[in-house]
Design a protein around this nucleic acid. Structure first.
Lengths: 239, 239
DNA sequence: CAGACGAATTGATCGAGATCAATGCGCCTC
DNA sequence: GAGGCGCATTGATCTCGATCAATTCGTCTG
């Protein structure tokens, strides 16, 4: 997969201008001035991926870094026998390229249609070296990710299936809210299997736990997501 | 706990000079020139902690950051009902202060005697702002931590008790080796409970799994640690 | 050396979540 | 609208690791 293709499927994208980018203010780019954004535009390769497409694979050489501008990306690691751990779901504004050296540390593929800005490793490295405030912003992103990772360890190591699911739902709700889409209905574009692999459970346990929470009237299961019916109880469990 | 005390228990410490520091080359300080090290020396407060002492507590205001120079520190999060997740063990050269904003995201306490260089948040922030190559080094540390965190997620979510323990032992062996102490005997200064809380297991399961691995002749249990007897098998399981 | 205390080990039993196995449901194609 | 396919749900059963309960071991103390 090259990083340099000039081609850009323009249909689904606004106008290719960073300053008009939907995720400008929530992404790493927010640390850049208008002048710097103009430079960035030259380096960025807007790219689209269809549902199921692979952005990159664990262990392969890391040619590019990505800024997600639309859609959801599944990030996961595989064991040789096929066991899978989803290490995160990247939403618009998220940056893919923190946790890697020469090779990608995990695989990434599109859940539904995804749009990204791709940058070659070389351009990215040069830019970071030249712009300390961009590095500072990236470092903030990295430390934030690290904090989330610690919380995920707590969740994976010490929480019950019900707690895991509730924490996941509240976490997704919060993330969508920060992107300007606050709602009692939490969009869940990923499959039950993805959720199971994120929470260290099986698909059956996830399904059963959803059903039980729905019977409790804690949530309401709707197409493509879940409606939060009893946030008090959910926050109490997550605390 | 203040960061400014001039007092420094000199007994166990070399000479208080950064350039002679035991962990100089493996820690964040390695990115600094001799001139910059001299400045750093003015800002650093060498401090000692006895076994069980608390460096800082989850949720309390983050006054200081720390560079571990000797000993091992247990980093952990607690749930309100007492469930504990150890998120890491900091060894000499490790930096404590990446994953925090205004408050500490986890608690830290000494396992055995510990020596650190403490820095006030203000001094740390100013220094990072002034020295881009220090920031770069910190960012490298953060991304490395993030990679380790992803591996820990895989371990917590998808591995069996035996795999967890073997991965833990190999990981500790590798970390000690990188600090210049390569050995088939892995030092384990932490308790079984600490290991259990790190791996998402109970103390009984850790103990039983150790016993089983010893009966297998995969390891030999020795005072204060474990001797690796069958590294081939262990690496095969961890792969 | 007796006693005490904390850490570790070992045994017996339990249970949350995994596994195995249908079945249901939506969506697409022909 | 019949058939097929992928995803989700539900039920029956099993198992790994948790829980409950003694010991055992090591170290410290009087």
């Amino acid at each position: 997969m090259s990083c340099q293709p000039p081609a850009c499927s323009t249909a689904a994208r606004d106008d290719g201008l960073c300053r008009n980018c939907m995720v400008r203010l929530v992404s790493v780019c927010a640390s850049l001035t208008d002048d710097e954004l103009a430079v960035l535009e030259q380096l960025a390769t807007p790219t689209h991926f269809a549902s199921g497409d692979t952005l990159f694979t664990q262990g392969s050489e890391a040619h590019c870094v990505y800024n997600v501008t639309a859609g959801v990306v599944r990030l996961y690691k595989l064991l040789s026998d096929g066991r899978r751990q989803v290490v995160g779901f990247a939403l618009p504004g998220d940056f893919l390229g923190l946790a890697m050296r020469d090779a990608y540390g995990f695989s990434a593929d599109a859940i539904g249609d995804v749009a990204v800005c791709a940058f070659s490793r070389a351009a990215y490295t040069a830019l970071v070296d030249a712009k300390p405030h961009l590095l500072k912003r990236l470092h903030e992103f990295a430390t934030h990710e690290l904090t989330l990772a610690h919380e995920q360890m707590m969740l994976l190591g010490r929480r019950t299936a019900e707690e895991k699911l509730i924490c996941f739902l509240l976490g997704m709700q919060q993330r969508w809210a920060r992107l300007g889409k606050p709602s009692v209905t939490v969009q869940l574009p990923m499959t039950r299997q993805d959720i199971a692999d994120f929470l260290g459970l099986t698909i059956e346990t996830v399904s059963r736990t959803f059903t039980r929470l729905a019977k409790d009237k804690t949530i309401l299961i709707v197409p493509g997501g879940v409606r939060v019916m009893n946030p008090e109880r959910m926050h109490a469990v997550a605390a």
